[in-house]
Amino acid sequence: MKVVVVDYGSGNLRSVAKAFERAAQESGLAVDVLVSEDPGDVRAADRLVLPGVGAYGECRRGIDAIPGLREALETFAIRQARPFLGICVGMQLMADTGVEHGTHQGFGWIGGQVSSLTPADPALKIPHMGWNELDFCRSHPVLEGLRLAPPPHAYFVHSYAMSVTNRDDLVATADYGGPVTAMIARDNLIGTQFHPEKSQAFGLGLIAGFLKWKP
């Protein structure tokens, strides 16, 4: 199986790649992990991972700056409906729009908006940084075999959050002065606001679930 971690100049790509290698090894899966910006590699992938850190508009520009990448992502995730995981801003990019230093178009794959976190309690720090519990609204095949109660912890670091238009797309939230979208899914697409590659055993378990998933 070939997993491509999309490199568009954003993110802790090495951490992501290493976590996929470890998760594959622990579950006895033969997986090649490739970090690449080449649309050809994206087309040839069996599983696609879109990481992303930093500002929404910067990430979007980073993708658009690589000729053919946007189209290759769309073909993979929508037309061919193959397994796709977006992490952090990589998840947020699946939304319709992101409002961060201006309004930016997302991919529009999963209806929703990305806007700044405004917790009800002004004493809460921004970014939302650290380990928070995941409250699951529903199950999902990539979570199979993972213990979801009591709530597992995942590592978050973000100042902007996605709100989904259709509540069925929401898999989990985290409480930070109110519910914050933590995981979304629709058809062959999943996205996590948290960083599975930095979430120790739970994160590696989720990655293994993604590798085994047959949407």
Partner: peptide
């Protein structure tokens, strides 16, 4: 740092 990232899955 590189060798640590190989084996540690925390920030």
């Amino acid at each position: 740092v590189a060798r640590t990232a190989e084996c540690c899955f925390m920030p």
